[in-house]
Design a protein around this nucleic acid. Structure first.
Lengths: 109, 109
DNA sequence: ATAATATGCAACCTATTGGTTGCATGTAAA
DNA sequence: TTTACATGCAACCAATAGGTTGCATATTAT
């Protein structure tokens, strides 16, 4: 199962964390040390971001000796897409049309 | 065009604001007063949430006399789905399989 | 005209977030 | 068996978020 939807949304709300996800998407299974590179902050700060991603189950980790490997979990993003995004996508064109007419019709400034 | 992606993600990061979107999705064009009902906070607090939604272009407003009507704009959600979510959805099954084998194979606690 | 309604704006308070530094611990390499 | 490396943990700090109260303003109803 996927984590609390709110935790997922909150985890995705920071560009630093989305960047970490993007980097895992490009190269899965990286260590903390690798993920720290190119991040403009201390290792400890990166750890905190990864902790939030883990608590949202967006990232899972495995120890290999003294190194911690990080893997992307695609489930929560899929769940958000299915349960939340799709609901809005269904009436997208209708809502867009309504928006247009309302803005044109009633607004004068 | 859609707003800054980061503003959209941040706007979606609070359950109160997602609830407001849901309520507009169910009944578009509501006034501030209507939207305040069932929200367990002051009108001014709701206004602040709606301001963030507006700045993310998730909501557009129209004045009708002394009332302010709020309309859903489906564009930013669509953009997030297309530009961001889909990227992860493409390799979903591959990533899931990789995750499984890594967790089973290398982790012992 | 006056009163009621719908909203905006600003100051303020507290909790949370996002970063830091410093130190401890377990693993690998010399 | 030291030394270096990869990471964790905790205290601390500044900035931001999320709420409040109080007051101002414009529109509608009486």
């Amino acid at each position: 199962m996927s984590a609390d939807v709110d935790k997922v949304f909150k985890a995705l709300a920071a560009p630093e964390r989305r960047l970490l996800l993007d980097r895992l998407h490009a190269d899965n299974g990286q260590t903390l040390g690798q993920l720290c590179q190119q991040m403009n902050m201390t290792r400890q700060a990166v750890t905190k971001h990864l902790k939030l991603l883990e608590e949202a189950t967006l990232v899972a980790t495995v120890w290999r000796g003294r190194e911690k490997l990080h893997f992307l979990n695609p489930v929560p993003i899929h769940d958000i897409a299915e349960r939340w995004i799709d609901k809005y996508e269904r009436d997208r064109l209708r809502a867009l049309a309504e928006l247009k007419t309302k803005l044109e019709g009633e607004n004068n400034g």
